[in-house]
Write a protein that binds this DNA or RNA. Structure first.
Lengths: 178, 178
DNA sequence: AATCCCATATTGCATAATGCAAACATGGTG
DNA sequence: CACCATGTTTGCATTATGCAATATGGGATT
């Protein structure tokens, strides 16, 4: 297997003045790089653990199953909202997961417009197993951090996400890239 | 534009015993969720700022241009390593960026095997402009954090990434999903 | 020199995810 | 009923990606 070294992606250093009276120029880049580099590691580890079984899942698929597992059955539009994708995207994902017998489509008798998507038994089993596999992998990494570090990391990241505030808008594709 | 609310993706709560004498069960999930949620925000913001111009870029394309800008011309295999993708993937990305006149292919006279990829003037301009746009967007978010928080976040994330250690292996696709 | 192996680039193949637009059905409201 | 909002579905186009196979060139060994 191809095993390249990891290289942090720094933003091009531009000799531009700092933003007017706000913060040092490099601060934003630094945070972006740190977060995205960490997330690439996490995504790689997750993808590996999700793929290391009989029923392999992609990360988006895993996310969909997790949503269904934790929030219960719902229609495609709602499902898409939870995943921050438009309905047609959720649609195709459901197509594939249904083909793999992980989810079911059940028309809602009282509202013939909508279709409820629910986990099959197989889907539930798979998502639980995948979760365990991933948990084990991640624990190996997180285990090297002190509880203080862990707590601080989570708290700060949540603050950061909170600061972002704005709901994830659509338009530019975000599957493609980090 | 579709504007769904952001929902943190929690791992399915499984009533399983904690890993034998290591750490609380939820710790790994908590960190994963925090990092991936933050990164989704960041990716969305980045994608938006990269797309908000005449010459739009995807995030992977932006990363490629940044590598070329900061490390100079190199062959396709090397380029792929910097981006953690196999050569054929780097190949197609170069195809597209070359079609958009952002990069050049120049055969190496002294080694007819390899082709050197370099930024065109347009490519350099675009990557610098894109960087500025993104920097401005991110600064708005990062600006709400105290310098202490920022520093702590970066330090902790770097520690985390360090702890991950292992180079990003290939196999399961990682474009698909976070 | 002939051989053999490794590094490179390149292309065919397949797949997932994604957004957008359009078509179509259903539910409510005025 | 006329209209509009809500949902599902499909056609279309694109990007990124890995894998396998092919072709070419560099070097080293015999």
């Amino acid at each position: 297997m191809y095993m390249p070294k990891r290289a942090p992606i720094a933003a091009p250093s531009s000799p531009v003045d700092d933003a007017p009276g706000d913060m040092a120029d490099g601060a934003a880049d630094e945070v972006v790089t740190a977060v995205l580099t960490a997330s690439r590691l996490l995504v790689a580890v997750s993808a590996r653990s999700l793929a290391s079984a009989e029923d392999t899942l992609t990360l988006p698929q895993f996310r969909m199953l997790v949503v269904l597992d934790s929030r219960g059955a719902m229609n495609i539009s709602r499902l898409g909202e939870h995943l921050d994708v438009i309905p047609s995207t959720a649609m195709r994902m459901v197509d594939r997961l249904a083909a793999a017998d992980m989810v079911d489509r059940k028309p809602n008798p009282t509202n013939r417009r909508e279709i409820f998507i629910s986990l099959t038994d197989a889907g539930r089993r798979v998502v639980h197993e995948a979760t365990e596999r991933r948990r084990a992998e991640i624990a190996r990494i997180v285990g090297t951090m002190s509880p203080d570090q862990r707590a601080g990391l989570v708290a700060t990241l949540q603050a950061f996400t909170e600061a972002g505030g704005e709901p994830l808008a659509h338009g530019p594709r975000t599957d493609v890239g980090w």
